[in-house]
Simulated assay, not measured.
Amino acid sequence: MRKNGVMVDKATGQPMLSKEDMERPVAVPFIISDIPEYRSPVDGRVINSRSDRRDDLKRNGCVEYEPSMSPTKGKIRNKAFAAKRGLQVSEEFR
């Protein structure tokens, strides 16, 4: 049972402590909710879960986007691109 984010004994209501460190609470699992359903922008298949997303990326030869992969590190340098989308060109490319 949890109380204020700490596991507690059901019978006593006292915090459950780690055997190694009697001052530290017992570690509890951290659960991440699944992603909302969407259609793959590459092949249109429905993606229902994180595992579906990983499979979709692999199947289509794609990788998760990271700005560090971009030659401009995610900064905008093309004036026409920026103007069309209502964005601003990054300082170092003006």
Rank of each mutant, 00 (worst) to 15 (best):
Q88G: 10
V63Q: 10
D52M: 07
I35G: 02
N4G: 06
T72R: 07
R50T: 09
K10V: 06
S70V: 02
A27M: 09
A83I: 05
E23S: 15
K19E: 03
K10S: 12
I76M: 07
R2M: 11
V26W: 00
P29H: 08
I35M: 09
F93R: 03
A11F: 11
A80G: 03
A11I: 07
L17I: 05
E91Y: 08
I31P: 00
V26F: 01
G86L: 07
M22I: 07
F81T: 03
P71N: 07
D21F: 01
C62E: 15
D34T: 13
E64H: 07
F81I: 02
S68I: 15
M69E: 07
P25G: 13
K58L: 09
N60R: 08
S49K: 07
K79L: 09
V8R: 02
V63H: 10
Q14P: 00
S51W: 05
V8C: 10
P71R: 10
P67G: 09
A27R: 10
Q88T: 13
S49D: 10
D52N: 11
K75G: 06
C62T: 04
D21H: 05
S90M: 02
Q14L: 12
S40I: 08
R85Y: 13
K79N: 05
I32A: 14
I32N: 08
G74M: 03
K3A: 05
T12C: 08
P36N: 09
Y65P: 04
R2N: 08
P67T: 08
G13C: 06
I32R: 11
K75S: 10
S18R: 06
E91H: 11
T12E: 09
A83D: 15
F81R: 03
E37S: 05
V63I: 10
K79D: 11
N60W: 07
R45C: 13
E20Y: 01
Y38Q: 05
N60L: 12
P41Q: 11
P41A: 14
A11M: 09
F30I: 13
S90H: 14
S18F: 00
S49T: 15
I31V: 15
E64Q: 09
E91D: 14
M69T: 07
N4A: 10
L57Q: 12
E20C: 03
G13R: 03
S70M: 08
R53C: 02
Y65D: 04
D55N: 09
P15N: 06
A82V: 06
G86T: 09
I35W: 02
R94F: 01
I76P: 01
R59Y: 10
K19S: 05
F30R: 14
E64A: 11
F30G: 05
D56T: 13
K3S: 10
E91M: 06
A27V: 02
D34K: 01
S90I: 01
A82F: 05
A11Y: 03
R85V: 03
Q14D: 12
V63L: 03
R85P: 01
L17S: 02
K73N: 13
R54N: 09
E91C: 01
